[in-house]
Measured scan of single mutants.
Amino acid sequence: NQASVVANQLIPINTALTLVMMRSEVVTPVGIPAEDIPRLVSMQVNRAVPLGTTLMPDMVRGYA
């Protein structure tokens, strides 16, 4: 089972991601792999991401 990136807090739209906003968790469906967390830092979300939501590739500008 692969860990995915999950929002550690509410992340408002257009917010640049920081390490404290994300955690890794084994979830279904699988989202962005946890090993990509360092790559996600400073990328912006293109929608509001509620606490506990799995980050999907289409939620992060420039990721996919």
Rank of each mutant, 00 (worst) to 15 (best):
N1Y: 14
Q2V: 12
Q2P: 14
Q2F: 11
Q2D: 15
A3R: 05
A3H: 11
A3E: 15
A3P: 08
A3F: 12
S4K: 00
S4I: 01
S4V: 02
S4M: 02
S4H: 02
S4E: 00
V5W: 02
V5L: 04
V5T: 07
V5N: 00
V5E: 00
V5G: 02
V5C: 07
V6M: 08
V6N: 01
V6L: 12
V6S: 03
A7M: 05
A7W: 02
A7V: 14
A7Y: 01
A7D: 01
A7C: 05
N8I: 07
N8F: 08
N8Q: 10
N8W: 07
Q9G: 05
Q9A: 13
Q9F: 14
L10C: 15
L10F: 12
L10G: 13
L10T: 13
I11H: 00
I11P: 01
I11M: 04
I11W: 01
I11E: 00
P12Y: 08
P12E: 08
I13E: 15
I13Y: 15
I13D: 13
N14G: 12
N14F: 07
N14C: 06
T15M: 13
T15L: 06
T15A: 12
T15N: 05
A16V: 13
A16L: 10
A16R: 07
A16F: 14
L17S: 00
L17N: 00
L17R: 00
T18N: 05
T18W: 03
T18C: 05
T18L: 06
T18E: 05
L19Y: 12
L19C: 06
V20L: 15
V20I: 11
M21S: 04
M21H: 12
M21R: 03
M21Y: 07
M21G: 03
M21E: 02
M21W: 02
M21I: 03
M21T: 03
M21K: 03
M22D: 01
M22Y: 02
R23T: 04
R23D: 04
R23H: 05
R23F: 04
S24A: 14
S24P: 08
E25K: 05
E25S: 07
E25F: 05
E25A: 10
V26W: 09
V26R: 03
V26Q: 14
V26S: 10
V26A: 08
V26I: 14
V27M: 12
V27W: 02
V27F: 02
V27S: 08
T28C: 10
T28M: 05
T28G: 09
P29K: 06
P29M: 07
P29C: 15
P29W: 04
V30W: 11
V30T: 12
V30D: 15
V30I: 10
V30N: 06
V30P: 10
V30L: 14
V30K: 04
G31P: 00
G31T: 01
G31W: 02
G31M: 02
I32E: 00
I32F: 03
I32T: 02
P33T: 12
P33I: 13
P33Q: 08
A34K: 05
A34I: 11
A34R: 05
A34T: 10
A34E: 14
E35V: 08
E35H: 12
E35D: 12
E35R: 05
E35P: 07
E35C: 07
D36C: 08
D36G: 07
D36N: 07
D36L: 09
D36I: 05
D36V: 08
D36A: 09
D36P: 00
I37E: 03
I37Q: 04
I37H: 03
I37Y: 03
I37R: 07
P38F: 13
P38V: 13
P38W: 13
P38H: 13
P38S: 12
R39Y: 13
R39I: 08
R39Q: 12
R39T: 08
R39N: 05
R39S: 07
R39E: 05
R39K: 12
L40T: 01
L40K: 00
L40G: 00
L40D: 00
L40W: 02
L40A: 01
L40Q: 00
L40E: 00
V41T: 07
V41W: 04
V41H: 06
V41N: 04
V41E: 07
V41A: 06
S42G: 15
M43R: 10
M43H: 11
M43K: 14
M43Q: 08
M43P: 00
M43L: 08
Q44N: 13
Q44G: 04
Q44A: 11
V45H: 00
V45R: 00
V45P: 03
V45Q: 01
V45S: 06
N46F: 08
N46C: 09
N46L: 15
N46H: 07
R47P: 02
R47E: 10
R47A: 11
R47Q: 11
R47C: 04
R47L: 08
A48S: 15
A48H: 12
A48G: 07
A48K: 07
A48M: 15
V49A: 06
V49Q: 02
V49N: 01
V49W: 02
V49D: 01
P50F: 13
P50Y: 12
P50W: 13
P50I: 10
P50D: 13
L51F: 14
L51C: 03
L51I: 12
L51K: 12
G52W: 06
G52S: 15
G52Q: 04
G52I: 02
G52F: 06
T53R: 07
T53S: 14
T53C: 06
T53I: 12
T54H: 03
T54Y: 02
T54N: 02
L55T: 01
L55M: 15
L55Y: 01
L55G: 01
M56W: 04
M56I: 08
M56T: 15
M56F: 09
M56S: 12
M56G: 05
P57H: 06
P57K: 11
P57Y: 11
P57D: 07
P57I: 08
P57A: 14
P57T: 05
D58M: 06
D58I: 06
D58T: 10
D58Q: 07
M59I: 06
M59Y: 12
M59V: 05
M59C: 04
M59D: 14
V60N: 01
V60G: 00
V60Y: 02
V60K: 00
V60H: 01
V60R: 00
R61Q: 08
R61D: 06
R61N: 07
R61Y: 11
R61W: 12
R61I: 14
R61V: 15
G62P: 06
G62K: 05
G62H: 14
G62E: 11
G62N: 06
G62F: 09
G62A: 08
G62T: 04
G62W: 06
Y63H: 04
Y63T: 03
Y63A: 03
Y63K: 03
Y63M: 04
Y63C: 03
Y63D: 03
Y63L: 07
Y63P: 04
A64C: 08
A64G: 11
